Simulated scan of single mutants.
Amino acid sequence: MVSYAKSIGLQVILKPMLNVSDGTWRAHINFFDHDVPCEPKWSDWFKAYTEFIVYYAKLAEESQSDMFVIGCEMVNTDRREQEWRDLIKEVRSHYSGPITYNCDKYQEDHVTWWDAVDVISSSAYYPIHTWDEQLPRIEKVVKEHNKPFFFCEAGCPSREGSKLLPNDWALKGQIDLSEQEDWYRNMFKHTSKEPWIQGFGLWDWKALLYPIDKAEHDTDYALYGKPAEKVVFDYYTSVEREAKSVS
């Protein structure tokens, strides 16, 4: 898939994502701060996780992926600074391209090891009315570390109430395509004013698409066939047009 994407002129970010088998969100993976006998240990977990990530780091190098993401939204692991620094050092011995860590929303100013990665990134699941509050906070982190920044994930389901809680994939609500459309339009409106935001990983575009006539019944994050898809298309078309006019 990486080879095919690159053959048609796309750049590729390889992002292995860890999920828990019982459905627990990866942000809640946690152990005692200090290793103790007969209990699960951070040392064991990071040993296993490093093996997992290094496997994909080698694949990223082999496939000449343009960026590698070493982790996603693992909030309780973020405080384990030395383990992450050790993991990053190991990854760099196998992958020569830029690396980033995709921290969770609200966590941008809590990660203490941004200096060890090449790019800062986070998940932009912010309520529709909070961009003016969140962007200045994130900008301070970006300026402090003088690193490129992008939103590695950004998206909103198409159901009632989702634009106020876009991170809640289990939120109960009826189909409402306008919620997703409004959220995307508002996100682009605010982020387009900030030149330090260099891109988005839009969540999501399914590998197996539903029939387009089923789009109006889909309450998930998918964009295909929904009004939000046109918002995205129009935004990137305008960005491309502006870039050409500048050049």
Score class of each variant (00 low, 15 high):
Asp176Glu: 06
His145Cys: 04
Asp234Trp: 02
Ala207Lys: 00
Asn167Met: 12
Tyr224Cys: 11
His190Ser: 08
Lys143Met: 14
Val141Met: 09
Pro227Gly: 07
Glu153Ile: 06
Pro157His: 04
Ala154Lys: 03
Tyr210Gly: 05
Phe233Arg: 08
Leu164Thr: 00
Ser238His: 14
Ser238Gln: 15
Ala243Thr: 13
Glu194Leu: 11
Gln180Cys: 08
Val246Ile: 15
His190Pro: 04
Ser247Gly: 14
Phe150Glu: 05
Gly225Met: 04
Gly155Tyr: 02
Glu153Met: 08
Gly173Glu: 05
Ile197Tyr: 06
Pro211Ala: 08
Asp176His: 02
Gly199Asn: 01
Gly225Leu: 08
Pro211Asp: 07
Gln180Lys: 05
Val231Gln: 04
Asp176Gly: 03
Glu216Asn: 13
Lys214Cys: 05
Leu177Thr: 09
Ile212Asp: 08
Ser178Asn: 11
Lys193Tyr: 02
Asn146Phe: 07
Asp168Ile: 02
Ile175Thr: 13
Cys156Ile: 03
Gln180Thr: 03
Phe188Ala: 10
Pro148Tyr: 11
Glu194Ser: 01
Val231His: 02
Asp234Ser: 11
Ile138His: 03
Lys172Val: 14
Trp205Asn: 09
Glu144Met: 13
Lys140Ser: 15
Tyr221Ile: 01
Val142Lys: 00
Glu160Trp: 03
Tyr236Glu: 03
Asp168Asn: 14
Tyr210Glu: 12
Lys140Leu: 15
Trp205Phe: 13
Leu202Gly: 04
Ser238Gly: 08
Glu194Trp: 01
Arg159Tyr: 07
Glu139Gln: 15
Asp234Ile: 03
Leu171Ile: 06
Glu153Gly: 08
Leu223Asn: 00
Met187Phe: 12
Ser178Arg: 05
Arg137His: 10
Glu160Met: 12
Asp218Cys: 06
